[in-house]
Amino acid sequence: MANLTLVQAINLALTQEMEDDERVILLGEDVGKNGGVFRATEGLHKRFGPGRVVDTPLAESGIIGTAIGLAMGGLRPVPEIQFEGFLGPAYDQICTHAARFRTRTRGALTVPLTIRVPVGGGIHAPELHSDSPESIYAHTPGLKVVMPASPYDAKGLLVSAIRDPDPVIFFEPKRIYRAFREEVPEDEYTVPIGSARVVAEGSDITMISWGASVIQCMNAVEAASASIELIDLRTIYPIDTPTIVESVKKTGRVVIVHEAPRTCGLGAELATQIMEHCFLHLEAPIQRVTGFDTVMPYYKLELEYLPDAQRIGEAVEQVAAY
């Protein structure tokens, strides 16, 4: 066991998967000698060589498009897109191709691909380095979307993603890359895709979140007088509906927290599923604490935009008092 940060846990997962499986290769901008701008691939270029840790031309469509070909050609590519804001040029390859090859070839050609992408705000970064586009990809059939909120889950989920037979977008919440450490086993383990984690048990309110917001939620849970059950979704698609339903049937009150804009954010889908499955158990309207329907502001105002413990606490009080 080692005490690791989230980014170190990712590095460990990559190292071990590359050791175990020669089909795993990394590609992207600055992932080689520089070890990635967040150092997620630190040391891997030296260890596995430039043939398996590849600095590519600066072209996201090229990175994902060739990774699709590599995957269909029998490899397990793990491309990195440097920041979520630069998924734009790769959107076509991800949504038009990676997501659809299995369906359109009736399974003859498949795309076992893991796209690693740092995501989210809160690090004082420039424009287009702080967005939360997860629901765009959750809304695209054929893609799995994952976002760990702890070092342990990061390693276990990344291993699952790399071994998954289908394309996975692996969002890494950059705000908590180095925010805290956690015991992460050296030994092999996986965290299954599609399973949420109950972070804290509680009986009054169910709070659902993912990514860096989970940490804000933990602060809010600590400050609240109500007993809150906090669920870290971990996988954005496919959603672990049973875990949510079980909790909401117990509590009857729900607060959903995400950084992404409110309209068509994943919170909308979660609220609908809860309504479908728990209608008669609900004691209050579901509350969402989210980013706004605006362009993510430059960093002077980013903390006004991102849900924090105060905003979450406000929603908790209102839901509890209803």
Binding site: R262, A284, P285, I286, Q287, R288, V289, T290, F292, Q310, R311, E314, A315, Q318, Y322
Partner: peptide, 9 residues
């Protein structure tokens, strides 16, 4: 309500 739409409440 700190930006959360209070109307459902």
């Amino acid at each position: 309500s700190l930006g959360q739409d209070p109307s459902p409440l």
